[in-house]
């Protein structure tokens, strides 16, 4: 509350006493209109994007979109079945990589490393990774996994997505664990439980819904990532190999390649794919929000 000194609150000159002058009222009204207008503009853009996806995407949706593989150049019809399955596989691979690491690291920051200098550094670096450009993570995985192993693979794609997801999970796990009241932990310790048992069966349980939210948010974050996949999983017009070696088809890169292709059915599929992916991500984000709101 030391900030509450009047030094930042400039005293208004005496001339403004009494009735509110016309110019002050005008400035106030102008600010209110501008702020409301800006908010409306941003909301309009979101609904404009959703409207565009629905108008252009629904026409491309059919049973074939979910059952057939991607069409070759110049061929009729086709679907996105392999891209959808590939995207689901890559995304869950990413989450499978990121969840154990992210949850454990978040646990370290909130429980073991509380107050230590190292934990502060890790927290700071994690926040930077959280906003690091995803294209750099794609390049990184290309240098450490794709180039040495001699080819694109779904594994590299999963690792790249996992690296993007880790900071999200670390951050939410730590925040959620910090909300768990200390006496709960003390009660566990008093019963003779070692720290690991206190954390796994008391703290984690108390923070469960929040931690699940973090994982859902990470899922929403990586499901639409395109740039890192260009360097790692690339794409595949056919069903990918079950070993995930070689290119693995996925929705985002397919959209990128099909959007400005000269074939009409490709463009149709790009719109259909955009609609599918955006709706899934928005639903995921909203569900995650509901869990947080319900948990409070």
């Amino acid at each position: 509350m030391s900030m509450a000194t009047p030094s930042t609150v400039r005293a208004l000159p005496p001339s403004t006493w009494g009735r509110v002058r016309q110019s002050r009222r005008a400035a106030d009204r102008a600010m209110k209109i501008i702020a409301t207008g800006f908010t409306l503009l941003a909301i309009t853009v979101l609904f404009w994007i959703l409207g565009m996806l629905i108008v252009k995407g629904v026409g491309g949706l059919s049973i074939a979109t979910f059952t057939q593989t991607m069409p070759g150049p110049g061929s009729e019809g086709g679907g996105l079945a392999n891209a959808i399955v590939g995207s689901v596989v890559l995304t869950f691979l990413g989450i499978a990589v990121a969840t154990p690491v992210g949850v454990l690291a978040g646990t370290y920051l909130a429980e073991y490393g509380k107050g230590s200098k190292l934990a502060d550094l890790i927290r700071f670096i994690n926040d930077i990774l959280l906003s690091a450009p995803s294209i750099l993570i794609g390049l990184f995985v290309y240098v450490i996994l794709v180039e040495p192993l001699g080819g694109y693979s779904g594994w590299a794609g999963g690792v790249a997505l996992g690296i993007i997801a880790i900071p999200v999970i670390v951050r939410t796990t730590e925040d959620m664990l910090r909300l768990v009241p200390g006496p709960l932990r003390e009660a566990g310790s008093a019963l003779g439980a070692p720290p690991s048992v206190v954390i796994t069966s008391i703290t984690w349980k108390a923070a469960k819904s929040g931690m699940v939210t973090g994982i859902l948010l990470a899922l929403a974050r990586i499901a639409g990532e395109t740039a890192p996949l260009i360097f790692t999983a690339l794409n595949n017009s056919f069903w990918f190999s079950p070993t995930l070696l070689g290119g693995v088809s996925n929705l985002p890169v397919t959209i990128y390649q099909f959007a400005s292709a000269p074939y009409e059915n490709w463009q149709q599929l790009a719109w259909a794919g955009s609609l599918i992916i955006t709706l899934s991500i928005l639903v995921l984000s909203l569900v995650a929000r509901r869990i947080v709101a319900g948990g409070k």
């Binding site: 908010t39 941003a42 909301i43 853009v45 979101l46 404009w48 994007i49 565009m52 996806l53 929403a220 499901a223 639409g224 990532e225 395109t226 740039a227 985002p252 959209i255 990128y256 959007a259 790009a270 719109w271 955009s274 992916i277 955006t278 991500i281 928005l282 984000s285 909203l286 929000r289």
Partner: peptide, 18 residues
Amino acid sequence: STTIELLAAVPSIIYGMW
């Protein structure tokens, strides 16, 4: 607030399409 935050959930490539 939620609507504004959802702008961040829209994937980059969809902004590209729009």
